[in-house]
Write a protein that binds this DNA or RNA. Sequence first.
DNA 1: CCAACCATGTAAGCTGTTACATGATTGA
DNA 2: TCAATCATGTAACAGCTTACATGGTTGG
Lengths: 175, 175
Amino acid sequence: MTPLSYALLGLIELGPRSGYALRKVFETTPIGNYSSSPGSIYPALNSLEKLGMVEARRAPDARGKGLYHLTAKGEATLHGWLAAPIGDLGEAMLRFAFLAEDDPEAVLEFLNCFEAAAETQAAGLQAFLSGENAKFMSVKSQLAVEHGRRQLEASAEWARAARQQYCQEPRGENL
Amino acid sequence: MTPLSYALLGLIELGPRSGYALRKVFETTPIGNYSSSPGSIYPALNSLEKLGMVEARRAPDARGKGLYHLTAKGEATLHGWLAAPIGDLGEAMLRFAFLAEDDPEAVLEFLNCFEAAAETQAAGLQAFLSGENAKFMSVKSQLAVEHGRRQLEASAEWARAARQQYCQEPRGENL
DNA sequence: CCAACCATGTAAGCTGTTACATGATTGA
DNA sequence: TCAATCATGTAACAGCTTACATGGTTGG
């Protein structure tokens, strides 16, 4: 179960698709930045099939293997992944996109944890920059670390903005 | 020649070190985020040695393989990498840390290119968000893309700040 | 003397990348 | 008919992760 596998499960949950259609999603949307695409996707799908996470159902007349559907096991695995504590922020971002559409509680909870994780990591880099080790580093190396810190701050800031959007939008359907 | 190899060359250029010392750098500084550390570093060093990029010189009494030094070939390879056009921003950041300390021209040039690359990619995501495809995506997926856009903006903003610092500092030794 | 650290490695396994191969169908 | 696109794969290779193995040295 790699990030790619989870991404595939997430996409299939949004709607059954063929392997080719899944590949196209990776080629034509920014999700391609998270997990790669061309020759890795079919092996991953086959491995998911072997694991009993997905099933290919073919309409009687159609070509190819048909459309992949989630099995109960696949759904459980996906939802387990979605509910896991936040570790790597990159992977967390991928998860965010697949969080249940109809559960604003979970979304807010996620955003809170994500913000906290980003702030913690940013503070870690800040501590490093203020510490002894950093004094022996070149200005450029320090700036490189500062870049990392800014990225983390941007992540935290994003989480706050996203939370705002989520607190307002779900109810403000028509004004 | 992976990013890890280049990182090793860059560190060795800053000062000859033993394999163990190099490993420690990855374990104790944020460079560990760029390229991994534990059991991958010795193979990488050996491969660099086979390629004739580094040489281990041992003081007569010392333990271990001694300190790695760059060869002419290693230095040429490193500088070639440093001078390459910016592709992946993550790798570019790693390069930035190893740019020649005494060449503010090159640093400013790098920062300009980096900023441009970040802005271009940010604009690409913005275009995607404004385009047709994004309309069929969930709000969360759109927010995930927005997160990527903010990260890129933060990178561009960092480049501007770093440039400022570089335009002032090199000459302002003593106010 | 024992733990911690110096110092260097090997081997298995998993993934992803790259590049190639195959064949059907569809639109110009 | 010819190119593009649908649709699915395979095989070779490179790289990283994890975990284990091995010894010497130093400090409490």
